[in-house]
C-alpha cells in the first residue's frame, strides 16, 4: 500500500544540516496496522509526514497504492491526500472556531458534493467514535479524549484507505488512550483501513501487527 524506497531527508538551515532520515526502505501492506517507535528526534514524525505527502523527501521514492507521487503538482497532491489519506495528530489540530460537526465535515468540503450529504456522512463518522451527542459543541468544550475522537472522525469521514497517526494517544491518560486505540483497532479490523501510527507506548505498539523502530533516522528493527 505504501512503499518507501531509499528515502532520505535532510533539513538544511543557514547554519546546520540535520539528517532526519538516512536511508529508509519500507513496505506497508494493504490492511496492515504498523507502529513506529523510537527516541525523541529520531525522525518518526518526519517519516510519517513523508508518507502522508505533507513533506517531500530529499532523496528516494514514495509510492502509494502503486502510484508514483514525486511528480504531482500542488493541486494533485492536495487531491491525492483528500481521497487516500486521513491524518490524526498528537495535539488534535481541531479548528476551534468551528463546531464539531463542521470540523468533521472539513475533508468533504474539498471534494465538492451536496451539503446535506456532507453533514450526514459527518454525523455517521461521529457516531462511529461515539460522539453523536456532541455534534453542536465547539472543540474547546470537549475533553482531550473527546477531541481526539473528533479528530478520528474527521480522519475517517472521507473513507480513506490509509490513516496516519502521529502519537494519537500522546496527550491522553491511559484510559482515554485505550479508548482511542480501541477505535483505531476496530477501524483496521472492520474496514480494512491501513494504519501507520507513531507511538511512545510499548503497550499500544504491541496491539498492532508490526513494529518498526527508528534510531537517528535509520530503521533498526
Amino acid at each position: 500500500m505504501i512503499q518507501l524506497k531509499n528515502v532520505k531527508k535532510v533539513y538544511r538551515t543557514a547554519t546546520v544540516e540535520t539528517l532526519a532520515l538516512s536511508d529508509i526502505t519500507l513496505n506497508v501492506e494493504r490492511g496492515e496496522f504498523l507502529s513506529i517507535m523510537g527516541p525523541s528526534g529520531c525522525g518518526k514524525s518526519t517519516l510519517l509526514n513523508i508518507m502522508g505527502l505533507l513533506d517531500a523527501p530529499t532523496n528516494g521514492e514514495i509510492r502509494i497504492d502503486e502510484e508514483k507521487t514525486d511528480r504531482l503538482s500542488d493541486k494533485q497532491l492536495a487531491n491525492f491526500r483528500n481521497r487516500k489519506l486521513g491524518f490524526i495528530f498528537q495535539n488534535y489540530h481541531l479548528i476551534n472556531d468551528l463546531k464539531v460537526l463542521d470540523n468533521v465535515e472539513l475533508p468533504l468540503l474539498y471534494r465538492g458534493g451536496v451539503p446535506i450529504k456532507r453533514s450526514k456522512l459527518a454525523s455517521e463518522a461521529l457516531f462511529k467514535v461515539g460522539l453523536s451527542n456532541r455534534m453542536k459543541h465547539f472543540p474547546t468544550q470537549l475533553s482531550g479524549g473527546q477531541k481526539q475522537r473528533v479528530a478520528i472522525a474527521r480522519a475517517i469521514v472521507g473513507n480513506p484507505e490509509i490513516i496516519l497517526a502521529d502519537e494519537p494517544t500522546g496527550n491522553l491518560d491511559s484510559s482515554m488512550g485505550n479508548e482511542v486505540m480501541e477505535i483505531l483497532l476496530n477501524l483496521n479490523k472492520n474496514e480494512g483501513t491501513t494504519i501507520v501510527m507513531v507511538t511512545h507506548d510499548e503497550n499500544m505498539a504491541r496491539k498492532t501487527h508490526r513494529l518498526v523502530r527508528l534510531f537517528d533516522g535509520a530503521q533498526v528493527q
Binding site: R81, I95, L106, P107, Y110
Partner: peptide
C-alpha cells in the same frame, strides 16, 4: 497556522 495546516493536510490546495 494550525487551521491552515489541517486544511492543507485534508485536501485544500494552496490556491483554494
Amino acid at each position: 497556522s494550525s487551521e491552515i495546516g489541517v486544511r492543507k493536510a485534508f485536501g485544500a490546495s494552496s490556491s483554494t
